[in-house]
């Protein structure tokens, strides 16, 4: 397989994942804007959404105010924002387009239809009442593509690269969401445990579509900072947790190593990070510092992406 093909498959899936994650962040932010305030103000909520999306610096270069209109436009439609939903969809499609021969027609058609549908929407017509439906549509389109991929793509090196792209992006997204509000997850907060905290915790869970599954995973089902953190970091049943992502990444790396008959540095890096998530308890992570843990994780995850690119000639 061409190095460029591997790279395009990696980024195709990564951008599809990003489009979905951005959309989910927007959904949650929109919901916050609809909900009666708990002491916090609207500007601060949008700022925090932009930080979670990793887009705050670019936003501030372009806009003065953290208003809903500006934020939605920047996160959803703006081509100047390389991580906006529009940019992500276009990047996913461009990458797919350049490897048309390595993907199935079902995959291509689902991405292409998303692109066409998205292009037909005029940002100025995206009023508040239409936004939820539209966000839901984008999310479903991203899921459709994932389904097309899982249902039709050959399980060879191309598949592994696409999965690595998707799960590195997902891990990054979950880690970022946690890190932006890490202080409200610290056990000290448990004592306070007021309705504001409960509200913030559920917001975090919603950002990763985990609000309901949390209730099933924890038997007494009340929201606790410790449990929320554990759920999103160490619990393998949760498909957006860091541990789940690295289980999947570790499997893909093993498959790659096997199919090429050679173990490269990227595999060792993935194994190390995987170890951090399987050989520690949540207590230990809190002891050593949650913020430090997350910062280290984000850097490692990013490092893995770079090393893959070097090991497999992404060019």
């Amino acid at each position: 397989m061409l190095g460029r093909t591997a790279s395009s498959l990696f980024w195709m899936s990564r951008y599809n994942e990003r489009a979905e994650n951005m959309t989910r962040l927007l959904e949650v932010a929109y919901r916050i804007a609809m909900t009666p305030r708990f002491a916090s103000d609207a500007e601060e909520d949008w700022r925090s959404t932009l930080v979670s999306a990793g887009c705050c610096t670019g936003f501030e270069e372009k806009y003065e105010e953290f208003t809903q209109k500006n934020a939605v436009n920047y996160l959803l439609f703006d081509r100047d924002n390389p991580s906006s939903v529009r940019s992500s969809i276009e990047q996913a499609r461009n990458n797919a387009r350049s490897v048309r021969t390595a993907i199935t027609s079902e995959m291509w058609e689902s991405l292409n239809e998303t692109y066409i549908g998205f292009s037909e929407v005029r940002p100025q017509h995206m009023t508040d009442d239409k936004l939820p439906d539209f966000l839901n549509w984008v999310k479903q389109r991203a899921m459709l593509f994932r389904g097309a991929l899982l249902g039709t793509l050959m399980r060879n090196d191309g598949y592994y690269f696409s999965q690595l792209g998707a799960f590195i992006e997902r891990a990054d997204n979950t880690a970022r969401i946690l890190d932006v509000k890490y202080w409200i997850l610290l056990p000290d907060n448990e004592v306070i445990g007021g309705s504001l905290d409960t509200y913030q915790w559920s917001t975090i869970l919603r950002s990763v579509s985990a609000n309901r599954s949390y209730r099933h995973a924890y038997r007494d089902s009340s929201l606790k900072a410790f449990n929320v953190a554990e759920f999103l970091i160490l619990r393998k049943e949760m498909p957006r947790s860091l541990a789940y992502c690295y289980d999947w990444i570790e499997d893909c790396m093993s498959d790659l190593t096997e199919s090429y008959g050679e173990k490269l540095l990227s595999h060792d890096m993935a194994t190390d990070t995987h170890g951090l998530l399987t050989q520690q308890t949540m207590e230990e992570i809190f002891q050593n510092g949650l913020h430090e843990f997350l910062t280290d994780f984000i850097a490692r995850n990013n490092g893995l992406s770079h090393q893959l690119s070097a090991d497999y000639n992404f060019a």
């Binding site: 397989m1 460029r4 497999y312």
Partner: peptide
């Protein structure tokens, strides 16, 4: 055409010449 023939679709930067032969830059 590449797809229907089962051939590789390449751009110039995917190929290089060494020892008088043409090579594709692959993942390995």
């Amino acid at each position: 055409l590449a797809d229907t023939m089962g051939a590789e679709l390449v751009e110039g930067r995917d190929l290089y010449v060494e020892g008088g032969k043409v090579w594709m830059r692959t993942t390995r």
